[in-house]
Design a binder for these strands. Sequence first.
DNA 1: TGGCCGACCTAGCGAGCGTTAGTTAGGGAG
DNA 2: CTCCCTAACTAACGCTCGCTAGGTCGGCCA
Lengths: 200, 200
Amino acid sequence: MVEKTRRQAIEDAASALFHAHGYSGTSVRDIARAVDIQGASLYAHVTSKQDVLWSIVERTAARFEAAADAIEAADPGAATFGRGVYLIALVRAHVGVVTDDIERASVFVHEWRALEGHRREEIARRRDAYEDRFRTVIADGVRAGAFHAVDPVATAAYVLTALNGLVSWYKPDGRLSARVIADTYADLSLRAAQAPRMPA
Amino acid sequence: MVEKTRRQAIEDAASALFHAHGYSGTSVRDIARAVDIQGASLYAHVTSKQDVLWSIVERTAARFEAAADAIEAADPGAATFGRGVYLIALVRAHVGVVTDDIERASVFVHEWRALEGHRREEIARRRDAYEDRFRTVIADGVRAGAFHAVDPVATAAYVLTALNGLVSWYKPDGRLSARVIADTYADLSLRAAQAPRMPA
DNA sequence: TGGCCGACCTAGCGAGCGTTAGTTAGGGAG
DNA sequence: CTCCCTAACTAACGCTCGCTAGGTCGGCCA
């Protein structure tokens, strides 16, 4: 299956363009040019520009959710047992999804606001639920004494925005591999949350 | 001086709109409507839409730079002496500029890419120089043994993107005050960078 | 009092926007 | 061979874009 459907090629091109210029900075003719057809011909494959954005954002949201779900599936005890382990797994999962396809991840992170109506609300809700996984593991860790007693909401926001910040600097062929970044980011996130081993 | 020049009102309105909808998602007529004049009348106060963006971005860049400069000015020893202290000061300065005017900070963080030509290049250069302050203090701390020996470039990116992430969730009248956030973020950043006091 | 000037207006330019309509070329199935 | 489907095309619609031109009006200064 080296074949790629036209629809897939269009979403690939749109992801790259939305990543580079934003949703409203990209015209349907720009997307069409990237796949070498006329602007109007796009509509044989796609029902609207909004629809292309929705496809990209929704599928990427699902990938983030699936990656996080897989952690609990792999080790049902981790969520309630070792908070450090669970937080590390969440961070690695998130970094993995981002580095696996930055363009789509970038569109998910920055362009979901361009969605209209109930679709925007749905993504807002799902983003909040996803962020809540971070808030919960941190709050649990604080309660158990494993994590430093800072505000779990602020801590989760700090960590998650740091991870999302990857979309603005990660380059697949850069000096730092996805693997190294995952290691480093997991380390930094855990250290930020963790209680000191010895009181100062 | 309760008076506000029309030009200032226009930049305020543009900042709010660029923050909410992005540069290319905002029309000059949108900006004009926000200050209750006709779209064309804007051009009595402004030479172009690009120019408004430039004013906002440039002035905000200068505020970030000035806040960081003020640290060294206040305590010339800090930069080379206590790395932890200096990193904390950098973080607090950055958070202060962001919380002081999120709308402009948000435009600076996200919309500078919409600048064209040499202005875009200038901001790219100045952003890199600013980020280098973080890289340097972290690298110095690692060399001195005060900080954990993770990659200083990745660590600086992690911390700085976390701080910039504030623009996507901070609300001036929210539960967490600017003061509390500055405390928390300084704490998290230092902890992320610092060497453990006792080997595990 | 007269002239100027800044702030605003209406009108409109040329370009580009997202999208629709109608058409055509080519290939597979009956 | 014919029929029809798919994937393109060209043309164009109505609208908005950033921006310019030219005019009106009121307040300040000589």
